[in-house]
Every structure is written in structure tokens, then in C-alpha cells.
Amino acid sequence: MGEGEAQGAQKVDYAVRLRERRKLAWAVAVGFMSSALLMVFTLGVVTGALTTGAALAVAVAVITLFVAFMLMDIVWEGWGIQLFSVITVIIVMLLMLNIIFGRQVMP
């Protein structure tokens, strides 16, 4: 039972330790920062300070991307994963833009 744990503990070298601790600290920070942003955002909506669609969209996109890139480890990975993330964002944007602009302007 304790075997794997002991093994694991021995294998972890200093660099990994440092990296994982840094990741841990960042995750907690992201938790607090995103929560704060979300609360401010909600407050803005409730009070009517954030009324335009563009402001809302930007706020949502920023928090979403922030959470995704931090908590999905994307910032910690190599360029391969980052490239794929960017392509995914582009493709999601393509779908959204098509849905939003691929409409009728004629009555």
C-alpha cells in the first residue's frame, strides 16, 4: 500500500517538485482571480454597468480563455499543444461567426 507512494516520492526530482509547486500556487491564484472577475462581471450585469453585448462577450471570452489556458495546463505545455489550442479557438470562432453572420439581412 505504501509502496507506490514511497516509490513515487523517491523518483520526484527537484525540478519536477519546483514545477509542480509552482503550478499548484498558480491554480489557487487562478481560482481567486477568476472568481473575483466572475463576481465583478455578474455585478456589472446586475447593476446594468455592463450593458452592451460586446462588453459582455469580451468579459466572458477573457475569463473562459484564462481558466482554460491555466487549468488545462496549456500554458505549461510545449508549443504543440498551444498550437492545437489556438487552432481550436479559431475553429470555434469560425463556427460562431458563421452562425452569427450567416443570417438574413433581407426581411
Binding site: Q7, V12, L24, V28, G31
Partner: peptide, 19 residues
């Protein structure tokens, strides 16, 4: 959001060998 933060912390625990 915080559920994800804690899952992330759990994964760090596994990498650090901290059960």
C-alpha cells in the same frame, strides 16, 4: 471553478507523490 482547482491540486499531489 473551484472543483477544477482542487482536481488540479490533486493531480499536483499525484505528481509530487503526496498521497
Amino acid at each position: 471553478l473551484w472543483s477544477a482547482v482542487f482536481m488540479y491540486i490533486a493531480a499536483r499531489g499525484a505528481k509530487l507523490g503526496d498521497k
